[in-house]
Write a protein that binds this DNA or RNA. Structure first.
Lengths: 194, 194
DNA sequence: TTGTTTAACGGACAGTTGTCCGTTTAGTCA
DNA sequence: TGACTAAACGGACAACTGTCCGTTAAACAA
């Protein structure tokens, strides 16, 4: 047997792509759509669906993989264009705004999981946070000693805020608290305490 | 029909108690025990089980209700015996140590749920946090403006930390970050930075 | 006691998740 | 082109959750 460049057989790849396409629409419309319904809509059997995506999280992760990649890449981009602390702020704001990355992916950020590709995505995010933190520390913009895993875990809360009215304000308050916890030196232009 | 003092008919109360007793043991042994198995072990039908406890969380909540009550009550006790900030610290430490209050209840602290009794338990916890925060603010031990819901949400993370080695250290780091975020004035005796 | 009401019971059932395994077929090589 | 092999398929199945509804019996009144 030979393999395609990505290690998948042609029919497997086609199925995978079709499942993802269907799932993206279905889950966007209703995040709790039954996986069996997605399988049916994609014209594949249960077995096929679960072989490609063993859990709901794995499916959600694959769907939002692009956004995760983008978010991870954003870190270095921001660091090039802005002072470290502002880069961190902007990155967190983007994180909070990525409303597409809902519940399903949120767990991922709370702690390492066992699935390989989930681990990888988690690592990407931790690396992003780590680079931002390191830059801030080097610039003296936050205190030393912050732990990237901890910070990511705390930031993960931003997705658990129910999307009622006042969500944004709440997210802002929580972010501000975390930044303070990091010992962020207030920048010129921001309102600050004593 | 008349009712007992607690509003439950005698047989209903007996069933409820029996379910709780069985569930406590079963869930302690394996947090993922099937609810159907618990129902069977308690000698009640599916319907009875679900009427008493509509969801797994509701059951977990009922089991740990005493601990939640104790935790809520602890707040005022600590405030009487200690300076506000230390009371808050001790309370959070106790919260982090309540390892029995695992996953199932954790969600509860993340955001308001719709179930009535879950709401009530949540409110108890928020009230506890609010009183602690208020005392700290009044004493000038933390900055004004902290939001009890936000703080509880952040503290809820403490239960999501996987119980690997290093869990305690991680919990301590996260708590420290939150306290800093609240603007906690370091007490004499604690190690602190500039 | 006996009768009436209705809360509570409990098991059947429908829907979903995740697994298993016999069947199909893509890709390769002669 | 035809045969071979293993990756992939897909549907049946087992387990679990949560609902529905006909039946039972607790509480009370006459």
């Amino acid at each position: 047997m030979a393999v395609e460049e990505d290690g998948l057989r042609a029919d497997a790849r086609a199925n995978r792509d079709r499942i993802l396409e269907v799932a993206r629409k279905a889950l966007t419309a209703d995040p709790e759509t039954a996986l069996s319904a997605i399988g049916k809509a994609a014209g594949v059997g249960q077995g096929t669906l679960y072989r490609h995506f063993p859990t709901r999280e794995a499916l959600a992760l694959a769907i939002y993989r692009e956004e995760i990649n983008a978010l991870a890449a954003l870190a270095s981009t921001l660091l090039q264009k802005h002072p470290p602390l502002e880069a961190l702020r902007l990155w967190c704001a983007q994180l909070a705004d990525s409303s597409a990355l809902k519940r399903g992916v949120a767990k991922l950020l709370q702690g390492a999981t066992s699935e390989d590709d989930q681990r990888e995505a988690y690592q990407q995010m931790v690396s992003a946070v780590r680079s931002l933190i390191a830059a801030c520390e080097a610039a003296g913009a936050i205190d030393r000693g912050a732990n990237a895993d901890d910070v990511l875990m705390l930031l993960g809360i931003l997705w658990q805020i129910p999307s009622h009215r006042g969500r944004d304000a709440r997210a802002a308050r929580i972010m501000a608290l975390i930044f303070r916890g990091l010992g962020a030196k207030d920048e010129p232009g921001s309102l600050a305490g004593p």
